[in-house]
Nucleic acid binder design. Sequence first.
RNA 1: CGCGGGGUGGAGCAGCACGGCAGCUCGCAGGGCUCAUAACCCUGAGGUCAUUGGUUCAAAUCCAAUCCCCGCAACCA
Length: 546
Amino acid sequence: MNKNIFIGGAWPYANNSLHVGHLAALLPGDVIARYYREHGDNVIYVSGTDSHGTPITVRAKKEGISPEKIAQHYHEEFVKNFKDLDFSFDLYTSTMTQYHEQNVKKYLKKIMDNGFIYKKAEMQDYCPECKTFLSDREIIGVCPHCGGVAKGDQCDDCSATLNASEVLNKRCSICHSPTIQKSNTHLYFALSKFQNKVKELNEQRQGQWRINATSETNKFLDMGLIDRAVTRQLSWGVDVPFEGFEDKKIYVWIEAVLGYLTAGQQVAESRNINFEEFMKKGNVISYYAHGKDNIPFHTVIFPALLMSIDENINLPDYIISCEYVNMNNEKMSKSKGNLISINHLIALFPKDSIRYYMLANGPETKDINFSIDDFVQIHNKFMVGVLGNFVNRNLSYINKKFDGKIPNGKVDENIKNLTTETFDKVGSLIEQGKLRQALDTAMAYVSAGNKYYDDQKPWIQVVEDINGFNNTTYTCVYMMANIANLFGPFIPDTCLKIKEKLNLDKTFTWQPVEIGKNLTVANNNLLFERLQAQQVSEKYQELKKN
RNA sequence: CGCGGGGUGGAGCAGCACGGCAGCUCGCAGGGCUCAUAACCCUGAGGUCAUUGGUUCAAAUCCAAUCCCCGCAACCA
């Protein structure tokens, strides 16, 4: 029976280049998607660029260009990054598309019809000169604590977190005229009504949501869920589909997260399947991959929105929420200059080394420290020494002594059993979202191959026991064929190369495969080159300058 | 007493929800092998598992307190 699998990767915000942290968060989604496809299941795997919101408009104003241009620029960069790293999205879209905007409006109307959105008038800061309501960040004034210059949300001088209402002598940051208080009507989402249902969900998903997701959700529940504004005084975003809100846009938190549905639906339409049916409770297993800063949006807000749209729709089954990638024990940030972008990574390492490193050493349960040296070490040890070497030491011998003709033989029974075992174990770990352990287990299979080779001593067998030699070699090639499937979800490019070397079927299958007789080696190009830490480090310093 | 995460051999980490000889990679010392990209295989040295106290036949693992590091405090996507 084929299963329906829905996988959502968090939508990166189009205000900066992607960095290693994004990669750590999103890569697990791709592995899970590839795994289920190998398995023969129906997978919908989506993500996209989050293109709206205040920071982009602020930046656009500063740089004197349109927000759309900024969003478009980063969107194109993201698309390229994901392509370079072999992400297998069924659809990677953007919140700027017409399809997304139209469908978000449709969902919003539905939530309204179901009675979970209401109007509320509030006093808000207004600039009579610019004739517009101001968001907190667009207000400047005097800090009540230190008397310094403060924005509406934070003091620049003493960096205290502020509430717009406590700031003194408030003025508009654009024209500097004093603000006045004026009543403004916003729409609110009745998040508080979902307190019990979210709590129930959190309890049901114990063991499927990562620990950090469960505890973060508890934190929010303990504080009590409060209603959130749906509309925002902005010019850049999705229009509000109700009368009287023409000057406002839909707040990004609600609009971006609904992208999972709009993108999923778009994929379903292209396949002529009914998305509503696909996503129904009991019909699908869903995974969401993102960083820990995104947890409440995926475990509280998104489920509440789903319930407010349709009570039969599947709620997140697995929350794959990662911790942070730090540099020297500090959070990466642009201002600290310790941010390593995906563009840099791609320039420094082969894509599958990047995938391997981020998965095998990813911040699955706690923050990790990223370092170039560490990366080089892992690459040399596992990509070159274990995996590359196992393939190379066999095939180069066959090329040298047998003109590329792989001897026929019998596969070792122990290895056969190990193969079956490994597929089962790795598969189950991937399904649980435990990618580190899964990859460890898969790599142990290759190590077992190296050990088997050493124990058999084929370089001696070849003169003393040709039958034994044939069996050893044949068994190793059998292992390679299975490695090419076993690692398919993790490092697909390398797996394809292995398949090409041995003229194997290019389709990926999640089960032990037998190999045919009279195989030949098509090529024995090295899978990975050894790297020098110093050279990589120097190259990285160069890149940082540009 | 705002909240959360973490402190395990020289470095980076796993183990901790279901207590039972402290494990992995790198590095270091020694050996094997020569098919392989100084790659591969084996052995060894090195830790009172932050500190203190408690529960227990038994604690890195459970409980309490203390110290140190990091992150977050919701109109920041």
